[in-house]
Design a protein around this nucleic acid. Structure first.
Lengths: 150, 150
DNA sequence: GCTACTATTGCAATACGTTGCAGCAACATG
DNA sequence: CATGTTGCTGCAACGTATTGCAATAGTAGC
């Protein structure tokens, strides 16, 4: 199985691993395969499930440890959903936080423009540099506000 | 044990329970007692531990369920720490989010003024009404930024 | 292809929270 | 004070995530 089997953004991952003295194992490849077929976000548990679907012998701790490594390499980022569970953003370039409506359960991305302004506010007020992609704010979305006030 | 044993802001809690058709039980009283002796924030696990310190027979699920009820009554609010664990803010009037520095581990409150501006940004950009006290943003604090750039 | 080095795996144990359910007990009522 | 309702508790099982450790298996070098 040549490494070129991996889709575009992931093709060079095995090399990145080895260059760092890390090892490219079947288990890691499985996780990366699953991530490559994932669009946007996944929770840790979902990822474990999908890996298990391919290989029932998959061990959760291995998946989580692989995700840690991938995060160090900058290939995924993780945050926490409204309920505090791990949530992974796949692929660099998709940095964004989330807004979660506690009324209807919907989750939307925070627009980049808004995220920038928020980062600006915290930088100015407290000198704090926010990791935008780690943020999930909870509240009520436009629709639920309207129907509540009606 | 008269209800007046409970410190100021909690004295009327038993009544609030009963008025809603809820019951005032020894277990609930224990949780409220512990909360009354708590300043600011606690994690769920901490709360369970403190309850167990008073009464080793305390059951975690009872504590968590009591916290849910107290939150519905508006007596506590919960958010999620940087690692996604439950974190309770004790007492109304202390609505605030947190900034957690992933470098040094410190946690500070988000200044009310900044929180307002952030809420404004999201309301304007997406019509979203943020529950400020549920927010924990992760990033780097002023000090860690400085030492990193040096 | 074989070897040595050591990064990873698998597993078991642990921590934090949640949920379903049967039995118990608060409390309003008479 | 006895009683009926039904909200709560305790328990056990489960879901999600993390950690320590011994055994395994990638890799580089020969």
């Amino acid at each position: 199985m040549p490494a070129t089997d991996l889709p575009r953004p992931w093709a060079s991952v095995p090399r990145q691993f080895r260059e760092r003295g890390l090892r490219w194992t079947p288990q890691r490849r499985a996780v990366v395969d699953v991530l490559a077929g994932t669009d946007g976000h996944v929770t840790g548990a979902e990822l474990v499930d999908r890996c298990r679907a391919r290989d029932p012998s998959t061990i959760p701790s291995t998946v989580y440890r692989t995700l840690d490594v991938l995060e160090e390499l900058g290939l995924v980022r993780h945050g926490h959903g409204a309920d505090g569970r791990e949530e992974y953003h796949v692929g660099p370039g998709s940095e964004h936080g989330h807004m979660h409506c506690s009324a209807c359960g919907a989750s939307r991305e925070i627009p980049a423009r808004a995220a920038e302004r928020i980062a600006g506010v915290l930088a100015e007020a407290a000198g704090f540099e926010v990791d935008v992609s780690h943020v999930t704010v909870v509240g009520r979305c436009r629709r639920c506000r309207r129907s509540a006030s009606a």
